[in-house]
Design a protein around this nucleic acid. Structure first.
Lengths: 140, 140
DNA sequence: TGTTGACTTGAAGTCGACTCCAAGTTGTAT
DNA sequence: ATACAACTTGGAGTCGACTTCAAGTCAACA
């Protein structure tokens, strides 16, 4: 039972900013592979597992959905994306979605500013419906 | 039964870009007042009702939650906000939330760009967790 | 021996904002 | 008479990403 044997789910949770429940949930929905078990059926995690979890944590912060991030989880942090043109394309697309989101939010700011300064709220509020799934994040 | 008698829920839905179900739902949760009824118990709407619904449609597009928009629904489109300092303050706060959202999304763009151009995904992905409720909208 | 404490499981509950459904009523057209 | 459309109601279902719960297992410690 030395320190080299791996990490408990609690330790994994601490290191990855996920909760234990969330880790089990990710395993259940197939985002994480089935974890190795100790003799007592407790899950045990190794460095590679933590790397994937940290990648999830990071991609989640970029507003990517759990489904969308599945293809990326095989990559190491500094693996060369140009070797995977499809992933590169997906990431570029994700970036463009976010850029569109920024543009749209800027339009909203303009509408609000118009109301705040000129007192006028446009009759036809020329903004589109919110899309079903857009990233949400916040400054640290 | 002339054209001056008001609007059916279907007509209201058409004019406000809400669905009939949504209008009934808004009434149920108290976002809209209880509608007048015709003799046959059908809801009937007047100009003022449509104005409120359009205001909802507009505020929704700015990412405001149904709860948050309740205080604003008494205002006409061009009523002077400076007469209502609390509402002005709320709207300013809403705007600042959106601005923070933009800043945060810009950070995400930067992280993704770093990966796309230098191939490096930061170990510590220095972005905060998504907040529970942030606006989502899209360009028209 | 008994009681923690860490872990296990499957299932149910949460959030907001709808959306859909089935059954019923009313008014009009054929 | 009868079909049909438009509306009514209460209630259930949906979405994603968890969170919470109850009940069980297992090893270590007093």
């Amino acid at each position: 039972m030395g320190e080299t044997a791996g990490f408990t789910i609690k330790q994994a949770a601490e290191q990855t900013a996920l909760s234990e429940d969330t880790i089990r949930y990710y395993e259940k929905i197939g985002l994480l592979p089935e974890a190795d078990r100790k003799m007592n059926r407790h899950r045990i995690y190794h460095g590679e597992d933590l790397r994937v979890m940290k990648m999830i944590t990071c991609l989640k912060k970029t507003g990517m959905s759990l489904d969308e991030m599945k293809p990326f989880l095989g990559l190491t942090n500094d693996s060369d994306l140009t070797a995977y043109p499809d992933l590169q394309q997906k990431l570029l697309q994700h970036k463009e979605n976010i850029q569109q989101q920024i543009d749209s939010l800027q339009m909203i700011i303009d509408v609000i500013d118009t109301k705040l300064t000129s007192g006028r709220m446009p009759d036809q509020c020329e903004l589109a419906e919110p899309t079903k799934k857009m990233p949400r994040a916040q400054l640290i």
